[in-house]
Design a protein around this nucleic acid. Structure first.
Lengths: 208, 208, 208, 208
DNA sequence: AATGAATGAGTTTTCATTCAT
DNA sequence: CATGAATGAAAACTCATTCAT
């Protein structure tokens, strides 16, 4: 007969999406906590209390599931940073914009999402190298930071001998390293954000 | 050098030691290049053109071999940094001592030893967690840096809101991140050393 | 044609029959081309752009589907050969009747039906052995050939040492082998029919 | 010390070869009896009372094991036929040579070797198509028969409408079909050989 | 001291089948 | 009737480890 109101015809699709999400979430969690070397398909399905075969309904292989997690990690991170930056008043000074990005990146990496830290911790450990879409997405995120830094140092005098590309990498490396050592018992994320912002600020020529 | 005549027992020992070294070297190389997730016992012995069984003459398990590599990595790193610092004139200013440590750490990590980068890249990815001697050695190395930083900032005014422990971690994280992104084609280690030193210097209160 | 108005029940039945036919046709095609070892349920439904579950509305199991294909293959073959023979004038000489059967068998096997070749190629490869109805149908078809050959050699002198049963099997084997090697680019079916007829004729005692 | 007399230094190698042979033999047996569709790796290892993993010491995959069986089948068959032909007196008439080949092929296919029948029964059912070496070997065997037939019909008058290539295929098809239907209870191999030889002889133009 | 061979306990993967809608 | 989703049982395959020599 006619469709029951409010009953979604796509309920099967929704169920499926939910199942898929559970799997990816579990994988993201384990990858962010244990890293790739210690995360097997079996760990993921045990964590979700499902059957191994479910995975293969949604992904062609375990490797594909991992790739999906990392892809979501970098994409999500980029989207959030972009959104926060776009929401700023147009006249926000470049350095302030950079500080906002630093805060967003750190909070996401540590507090808000297993995907972010899964990406950061495992990006350099992908067995067969990165897929094309991972490379592309990473490059896009990298461009955001390049622009942020370039704007922030524009007009300032770069110290002789300093390589701007390396400097940017070092600062991002500093932020990302927090996934390995940050411990809520040793200090809040707020403190970490403040500290990181202070350090990065002090490295900018405009600070002189 | 050449083999000692009339000393079969010793030559056997030497051969054995050499074999062992080849295995550990190979493991260090692969761990530093591919990371733990992609490095299996089979890869290591294939790299040395040996048989899996050789490993078990020298190590109780594959895990032990990996642990040995990481232990060598951290130990070697500490020894070199200590030696360089000890060789400095006693009246070297603290900041200069820190700069020397930075240079030593970076050169070892990137140029001189697979062990150093094997350690740095995989420290956070050990399946069962660190062994006691790894923890101990890491703590010892950490103390060196704590002292270096403390001496360097002594007397200076710490910015309010800055957490010194975190700041130190961030700076070490920056240095260690180079294993993931450093590419000789984008700049020499000399440049990297200079850039890192400049950045760290600019973060120190004494620079004000 | 167009759908019958006011006859939903029938159109549904028709649709259902059509679906069933699509599946069996696809299975027949794949079995005749690839053989049983390479044909899975998944291949069949993918070929029809359907879902695995459809199969289970029409068949109790994948094995039943395969059996159905083979059963259709042998039945169809027998029916066609019988029809052609029945259509011959009653006074057709036995050898000519045999030649007609040879032509009918070959054309069906190679040109007209995936079912025929599916049967021929896979009859000896059924995992659990033949079902009863397959055995029965095969025996019935075999009887036709036995009679054809018996009539054709009746009155002729059988060479000493020749086993008639084996000779018949060999000739049928020759014909059936064409499914494995016949290639339209190496010669037409017409040529194949002519060649086969010539060979079989030359084996008959009446040819002397 | 010195090597123990009569103790083979390659005993390990011999053992290995023996194990490998057991596996291939078992696979050949099952393939010849059940065909590819019904033969799984697990069946082979169960038959040999070994562990699945042994297979992977000797073969990269189950597919490779199957390929090896088929390759041995065709190679072995060719070698035996060639040897028998080479041992004939140089002045043996071509038709007699052909008869010897027929006998050798049939006996090997039915009595002497699982490899021969494994090849014949499964050649047309290889999932991914034939490997290069299989094709090559098959072509070489085919050339032997082409020459045998060509020599046997040389000088005779080929019936108009008869395709020699097809005729040869049909006769080989007849012989190979015996793997599917031959049953020792219905007649000895001797009888089969005699019958086949008679039929093929009667097809040759020289018989006229 | 070294190694070729083998193995067991796992892992990933497959696939016919079922279920809920 | 049809189907998207899920599943269990079993398959192929992996790999650190051991054994016999």
């Amino acid at each position: 007969m006619s469709e029951v109101p409010f009953s979604n015809a796509d309920s099967a699709t929704l169920r499926s999406e939910e199942t898929r999400k559970q799997i990816v979430d579990a994988a993201a969690h384990l990858l962010s906590v244990q890293g790739m070397a210690a995360t097997r398909l079996i760990d993921v399905v045990e964590y979700t209390q499902m059957q191994p075969a479910v995975t293969y309904y949604h992904f062609a292989s375990f490797g594909d599931l991992v790739e999906e997690v990392l892809y979501c990690g970098i994409t999500e991170m980029r989207n959030h940073v972009e959104k926060r930056l776009d929401a700023l008043p147009p006249d926000t000074p470049p350095v302030d914009r950079l500080m906002v990005a630093v805060e967003t990146h750190l909070r996401r990496e540590l507090e808000l999402s297993d995907y972010g830290s899964a990406w950061i911790r495992n990006a350099g450990h992908i067995p067969g190298g990165m897929t094309r879409r991972l490379k592309k997405e990473e490059a896009a995120y990298g461009r955001i930071w390049r622009n942020l830094f370039n704007d922030a140092i524009a007009g300032g005098a770069i110290a002789p001998g300093l390589d701007v590309w390396m400097a940017r990498r070092l600062m991002l490396g500093a932020m990302n390293s927090a996934t390995e050592w940050w411990d809520p018992r040793r200090g809040s994320v707020d403190t970490l954000v403040a500290t990181t912002q202070l350090l990065i600020r002090s490295c900018l020529p405009s600070s002189a």
